[in-house]
Nucleic acid binder design. Structure first.
Lengths: 207, 207
DNA sequence: CCCAAAACCACCCAAACGGGTAATTGCAAC
DNA sequence: GTTGCAATTACCCGTTTGGGTGGTTTTGGG
């Protein structure tokens, strides 16, 4: 039984070319190709294909909204995004919306098929530069300017502890904790806990 | 000029096998293989190889600590982790520590070499299951229990705004904001802003 | 049509917070 | 050997917050 692939891509030529490549390859089938989400998603919800290829730059409803819509209805179907510009913030928005992969357009046919197969078998095909981008997002983006003690305080701050609790946890006085927090706010350029926690988590100063 | 690969792997047989595979392949060279980080890292800091393969389960100093140490000295050198069990929390710790890739051991030689090449050319080779794990980490882990308005409030809360500012931003009274926040705390089972922001960001209720 | 949830608003009060100022100690770098 | 940062503690004061209790109106689904 072949892998049933569906395509949502607004460019007529690219859409037909991909469909031909996929449908003409043994082990693959592509009977459904749409030019936008509005027409494609409702059909796919009924058809439940094995893999969906979705252009990210779609007119009307973007691929990001599309993947979110599709995920809502078919949470188990892997959606792979297609893009022309691989250096985009849309990568993360797509992944957050539920895409499992992210490929640049114009991939050689063999690699396209490999990617589809990988997506279908529990993998996450990504173009090298995109994979690196994703991985790098786990690493601290900026240098942590805080001292050792300040980081300890920040960790407890992120857990929602108050002056008194942090103080007893670190065996110091509440006033000391307060002083540390004041210094943390200055170094992170924030003015309250919520902002400090936000910055700490976004920059991965604490895990 | 071949890609100069270094290995840190405690199992003697695996180490030698990989070294033979790599060093015996055209376009690749592996002149350095170590059994632990303590001996390996200082040498590598001087040698500055093109790619490092690092076992994650090392005696004494774990590969996670090792990659952090290496990154500190050679931030530009890509480190690829090697593992036996691919379903581990150590994946994320490694990536946070600076690894660019994550492979299961016992990969066919051709794929190992492909992965090394990919790492060297700005990619992030990952075994399919691991890549999927990484991608899935971008998606909300649990269902968001909040209402539309509550999410709006939460977003502003995460930016460190206070009752009054949120109130004017949403064209409602401070008391209403307070009521929303109270409900948010209940639904998220937290008791203050720091915890709410922490939970919201970790579960990706806000971006 | 009704009911539950969402969204809205108000008041009280104690506790927690943020900002300011000021001081001592120790250690490391220059 | 002094200069600077980290870590520690203290006090004052006005603002903000969280918890409690009460209520109205709007809205969407059964």
């Amino acid at each position: 039984m072949p892998i049933r692939v569906a395509i949502i891509e607004d460019d007529h030529d690219i859409r037909q070319l991909m469909q031909l490549i996929i449908d003409g390859s043994p082990g693959f089938a592509c009977k459904q190709a749409f030019e936008d989400c509005k027409t494609g998603v409702p059909v796919l919800v009924e058809a439940a294909p094995d893999v969906v290829l979705m252009d990210i730059d779609l007119p009307e409803m973007s691929g990001i909204t599309g993947v979110a819509w599709l995920k809502e209805k078919l949470p188990e179907v892997p959606v792979v995004m297609l893009t022309v510009h691989e250096d985009n913030e849309a990568v993360f928005d797509s992944l957050c919306a539920g895409a499992v992969g992210y490929l640049v357009k114009g991939l050689p046919p063999v690699q396209l098929l490999q990617a589809i197969e990988e997506a279908h078998h529990g993998g996450s095909p990504m173009s090298p530069a995109i994979a690196r981008k994703v991985v790098r997002s786990f690493q601290p983006q900026v240098a942590n300017p805080l001292s050792g003690r300040e980081n300890e305080v920040l960790t407890l701050l992120c857990q929602g502890e108050n002056y008194r609790t942090i103080a007893t946890a670190l065996f110091v006085s509440s006033n000391t904790v307060k002083a540390h927090i004041k210094n943390i706010y200055e170094k992170l350029q924030v003015h309250n806990r919520a902002q400090a926690v936000g910055k700490a988590l976004k920059h991965r100063f604490v895990k």
